[in-house]
Design a binder for these strands. Structure first.
Length: 572
RNA sequence: GCGCCCAUAGCUCAGCUGGAUAGAGUAGCGCACUACGAAUGCGAAGGUCGGGGGUUCGAAUCCCUCUGGGCGCACCA
């Protein structure tokens, strides 16, 4: 498809000395108000170099552009050059591209041969998968989808929290109060119970903490009984996690969690020693980061056992050697900002120049109305329950509205789970939010169901279009686009046109909400078009042209939903 | 105490690397189903962009400062 900004810049470059096409391109704006044109060029900055008043510069530029086939009108308003595209020409270009590229519309090959690792979800074994975990899981999955769509060679890693002192606690608790039958029957709830009980007891009896650390130390040294229990807890937990991943339609390329690096940490310790970075303090080994304005990083405890920072360093080194990534992304809560800053600095100090390629992508905190979520106090909302309730609610709505679906259960799942995902990806990552049932079960306004509904509605129109639809899509070049020059049709086309840029932008910012927002805009614009214009008209030429635009909108919404990790139902 | 993040309509949030009159959704109010799906659309109303300085032709956006909130800061992850 033609790149309009570039085209404009190429024409303008002749009129402006000393500026490159790229620089001019960056100066071109797309006004929010279409009365001021489709593209605009502010001339204020040029005043100094060209030594002329901005309005005069605008006037001469406008004259240069007038008469070009790309534009319908070019005018000079308040030192802005406002450009109005030739609508028929534009809509033709656009709809042809979408009809040709279809499910690849918006994709790119800029990532070809470039490896990117996305670490996300990473729940703690033996603890429930609660609503706090949805963020890393869903945001990470979408970032993976976006990079995949941009042509990158992606690796999804679930860095399971399957190691550490918490397992010492779990094992101690199991031995004191647990039994095998309960764990097998309901693994996570039972294990959580042990964990909670452990902390209650430990308040009275602090020596339990030491006992737990001791047990973890044994586990790390390969003691048979400890390893057996740990393995069992891990297996049972994974079964339960996989059920949630399946509901969400999320997969991973690797489940190499923290335990995977158990035998790779000694090497890291040696590297740190060789670089003279290790220092003893209060019996523990630390890296002093004071001159970088950070608190010291604790590498090993006084009993010699490891901490997660060392595992993260070991994981990064392993990944560099095993995958040779170009970028290594961590979708982890903002609470861990300092942790990442610390160990990024440490690998930098180790002289590993790829430290700069490791990126922490933080997101805000989810809390409950009654306060911060706390696993050990049992104050959590289970993700599975949220998903199930959303699905049930959807079922009720479908039955109540008596709409036609192919399959009630499948559709309810697509819409209900989609609603939860969509809401999660609606706002900027970094914002904190308070979980509320009312909000997560509300399907009106800027929600997933709204976008999916719009998609289904477009699908319905295309079905009703029958043969005309097929002809429109198969030979888009044979269309009379003058039927698509009305404001609502044209506004829709402009939004569809921006989709590839939006995907790119979302990738650069690691921000799926950019895609979410944009498909809401497209849906709104489509619904307006739908109300303003009759699509299935008598005139075959007009009908086909309009169906082609409907197809372009529907396809773009679908591509966007896929990038969020959602389904795009044909009926709902 | 130190560090990082957030603050825009009653509520939840957009606002692109500074650009023309700050936009959606939601709640409340008033409309529109004899056209292709009303989980929809349209209209009116709703703002000292947390306060104060500064840079600039131009600031919600950049800099400084204050206030309010969140998170983190040694043997958990």
């Amino acid at each position: 498809m033609i790149n309009i900004k570039e085209k404009i810049a190429e024409i303008l470059v002749e009129a402006m000395e000393g500026l490159t096409v790229e620089e001019i391109k960056d100066m071109i704006e797309m006004p929010g108000d279409s009365k001021m044109g489709d593209y605009a060029f502010p001339c204020f900055k040029l005043a100094k170099t060209m030594r002329k008043a901005p309005p005069m510069i605008a006037q001469s530029i406008a004259e240069k552009l007038q008469g070009n086939e790309l534009f319908n009108k070019v005018e000079n308003v308040n030192a802005y050059v406002n450009m109005f595209l030739s609508r028929a020409f534009f809509v033709r270009e656009l709809t042809q591209s979408v009809a040709t590229e279809k499910e690849m519309y918006g994709s790119s090959d800029i990532g070809k041969g470039r490896k990117i690792i996305v670490e996300f979800s990473s729940p703690n074994i033996a603890k429930p998968f609660h609503i706090g975990h949805i963020r890393s899981t869903v945001i990470g999955n979408s970032i993976y989808k976006i990079y995949d769509f941009l042509g990158y060679d992606t690796v999804r890693i679930n860095h399971l929290g399957d190691y550490g002192t918490q397992f010492g606690k779990m094992i101690v608790a199991y031995r004191k109060w647990g039994n095998e039958e309960d764990v097998t029957k309901e693994p996570i709830k039972t294990l959580l119970g042990y964990y909670v009980k452990f902390h209650e007891e430990a308040e009275q009896n602090p020596s339990l903490e030491d006992e737990a650390r001791d047990v973890f130390s044994k586990l790390e040294n390969g003691a048979a009984e400890e390893v057996r229990l740990w393995q069992w807890f891990r297996d049972e937990s994974l079964k339960e996690f996989n059920r949630v991943y399946q509901m969400l339609g999320i997969e991973f390329d690797s489940f190499a969690g923290e335990s995977f690096y158990s035998d790779k940490m000694e090497r890291i310790l040696n590297m740190l020693k060789d670089a003279s970075l290790l220092k003893e303090s209060e019996g523990a080994q630390i890296v002093d980061l004071e001159e970088y304005n950070m608190s010291p990083a604790l590498i090993t405890k006084k009993d010699g056992s490891s901490l997660y920072i060392t595992r993260d360093i070991a994981a990064a080194v392993y990944r560099k050697e095993h995958y040779n990534f170009e970028k290594n992304l961590y979708i982890v809560a903002s609470q861990q900002n300092l942790h990442f800053q610390q160990w990024f600095k440490i690998i930098d100090l180790l002289g590993l120049d790829w430290a700069k390629d490791c990126v922490h992508i933080p997101f805000g905190l989810v809390s409950l109305e009654e306060g911060t979520m706390s696993t050990r106090h049992g104050r959590v909302v289970f993700l599975e329950e949220v998903l199930n309730r959303a699905v049930n609610q959807t079922k009720e709505i479908i039955l109540e509205k008596n709409v036609n679906t192919d399959n009630l259960d499948v559709t309810a799942k697509q819409v209900g789970i989609g609603a939860v995902i969509f809401q999660e990806l609606s706002n900027s990552r970094i914002k904190d939010y308070v979980f509320s049932w009312d909000k997560v079960l509300n399907f009106e306004g800027e929600t997933g169901p709204y976008v999916q509904y719009t998609h289904a509605r477009a699908a319905s129109v295309l079905r009703n279009g029958g043969d005309s639809t097929i002809k429109a899509i198969s030979s888009p070049e044979a269309m009379d686009m003058s039927y698509l020059t009305g404001d609502s049709a044209y506004d829709l086309a402009k939004l569809v046109y921006r989709f590839p840029d939006v995907v790119m932008d979302a990738g650069e910012k690691y921000e799926p909400s950019v895609v979410t927002r944009h498909i809401v805009d497209i849906a709104q614009s489509f619904n307006k078009f739908y109300h303003d214009e009759h699509i299935l008209v008598e005139n075959e030429e007009e009908k086909r042209a309009k169906l082609l635009l409907v197809f372009a909108a529907k396809q773009t919404i679908q591509n966007g939903l896929k990038l969020l990790g959602m389904e795009a139902p044909e009926r709902m």
